[in-house]
Design a binder for these strands. Sequence first.
DNA 1: GGCAATATTGCATCCGCATGCAATCCGGAA
DNA 2: TTCCGGATTGCATGCGGATGCAATATTGCC
Lengths: 356, 356
Amino acid sequence: MKTLAVNKAAKTMEKNGKGARKRATSYDVAELAGVSQSAVSRVFQDGASASKEMRNRVMAAADKLGYRPNAIARGLITQRSNMVAVVISKMTNLYYPEVLVQLTQHFSERGVRVLLFALEREGDTATVIEQMLQYRVDGILTAAMFTPEQLRTLQNEDIPIVFYNRTLKDQLVSSVLCDQQEGERWLVDELVNAGHKSFGIVEGPADSVVSIERKTGALNELAELGITDVTTVSGDYGYETGKECFAKLIQKRGSPPEAVIAANDVMAIGCIDEAREHFRLKVPDDISIVGFDGVGQARYAAYDVTTVRQPVHRMTESAASMLIERIENPELSPEKRAFSGTLIRGSSARLRSDDS
Amino acid sequence: MKTLAVNKAAKTMEKNGKGARKRATSYDVAELAGVSQSAVSRVFQDGASASKEMRNRVMAAADKLGYRPNAIARGLITQRSNMVAVVISKMTNLYYPEVLVQLTQHFSERGVRVLLFALEREGDTATVIEQMLQYRVDGILTAAMFTPEQLRTLQNEDIPIVFYNRTLKDQLVSSVLCDQQEGERWLVDELVNAGHKSFGIVEGPADSVVSIERKTGALNELAELGITDVTTVSGDYGYETGKECFAKLIQKRGSPPEAVIAANDVMAIGCIDEAREHFRLKVPDDISIVGFDGVGQARYAAYDVTTVRQPVHRMTESAASMLIERIENPELSPEKRAFSGTLIRGSSARLRSDDS
DNA sequence: GGCAATATTGCATCCGCATGCAATCCGGAA
DNA sequence: TTCCGGATTGCATGCGGATGCAATATTGCC
């Protein structure tokens, strides 16, 4: 059987005469070290038993050959790819990039690789699901919505999923989210306390769950406070539409509202610019404008947007943990973790008079 | 042998009594369809020969079982993972997220999956390389620099690499880049033509090749035009350091320069804010400030940064193609593709008087 | 020093699919 | 109807590593 190993390796060698040498396999290392392939395999595993002597011999041989365990082959036999799919959609908040990098780092620290899927729009999930399934990802972290049927498919395959900033009401799924409604309530309270009575709402793309949440949050609170003068227009989260929306708002109601609630900071910035540029309005003297997210740009001195900052770091950390836990223990039941944002009082909105 | 297949499948079944059914394999499909596993394999391949009748039977069985070819197993046998590694570093331009999404989409369209690696700093490449190698990616697209030794390792393994916005002088590597130096020359020309004689340069992180390129580009052109009053400070591409750098600049030279050249738009914005806020300088009346990249924020009305826009779409498209071509044909020699940016004349810099 | 308990090591086999080769099938030409 | 060439199909095997089991080497303990 030693002979067998030798033959195997020899055959491998001759097949690649001068051209690109094949990458070394555990058999090659085993042969060079004069041990069995299993031994090599064990040396490169965590909890496996191998004597010091063995470890040294194998490692020496491995170094000499530039051997690296083949994660693909390992995945095939262990039924664990150690990869998770991360799904984001393109026309989403400018703020997701940050999320993406942090997520990747969190996963990376725990030995999990990220297979990235970027959707053109939140709806394009079909082919992506097929891909994720074919690559046998161990889990899915998504910032895009899936249809109930897709969800069922994934459940059938026992692939844990964690939703990022989205969730399903009628279904048990794991999700990490920032309490959008709460945040909007804070903003509305702030604005109402400052004495504003007429409102404009700039919502995001129709298929964005987050945008819907924010809108309803704001509308509910406004209704509760007895404010009825509310006009809504919708954009796509981008700067340009922020500007357009502001103009539409004015056109729609004839005059500027006292306050504008934008679905995100970028559109809020668009509104501010449009208000200043085309309508000669002073922010916040003539009009208050608030956003959501707490992205970097919201802090630019020219805008200093009043907003609610999402605790991105804690959220990504939590999402990664949650997914990994469910990969390691599939029995865990779904869980929703909602994080509160932080109200950032910038200078784009009038402050409430009573500073209670 | 029909019997054999039956046994195999039967064994599989019994192993998973009630618990999670195992995912269907090509054997399961073969059995249900009453054909051989090879047949199933062929039906799910592109150029393979299979009769219409066969195709139908197999597909019917596959549908019934929810079968999906296992890309991991396929990768093992074909020696092609159909995955590429994309490496980005965190503290890099805010502008990369856009790049990332576009790259992913380009790859996706061509049937290639993206394994994402996010570095804390551009230097943290060591472990990442190990990972990429273990996962047997077919190619690497990197927006971070590798050491010559790492490069050698990758070359030994015959993994094609394409560098994004970085390259090596003394070595043949494929890269896609925006001509940073050219862009800076344009900006400098613009500023000098407008009559500016004293300059401040805000460079990026020391380990950013792009930043170095931009700085040298600017310095060279300034020298060529006989401008010697140049002060340099360095930041990290972020807004905050943009502000700090501007202050440092003034402190260093006692008075504001007539023009500031920032290594990217975000820092340019920081400079503008600091100039306005703390030094009561009017932009561009008292001072001209230019950036680089042409990110979204540069177009915000409050800044309207004069800058050079990188043709991101063409660059990502080109990078993806270049890598895929080299995966399909490893003999292709390295190639550098340099794209020209587009000068965007915003209002953050004085215009040249002669409008030639 | 002798023996049981424990730690190492090797063997054989499997993970799920692709593919060269041989066997079989089919249609058309003679 | 018979024969031939191309199209289909099945068989056997391999990709690179993990792992249960059995054989062997070590160790500790009395």
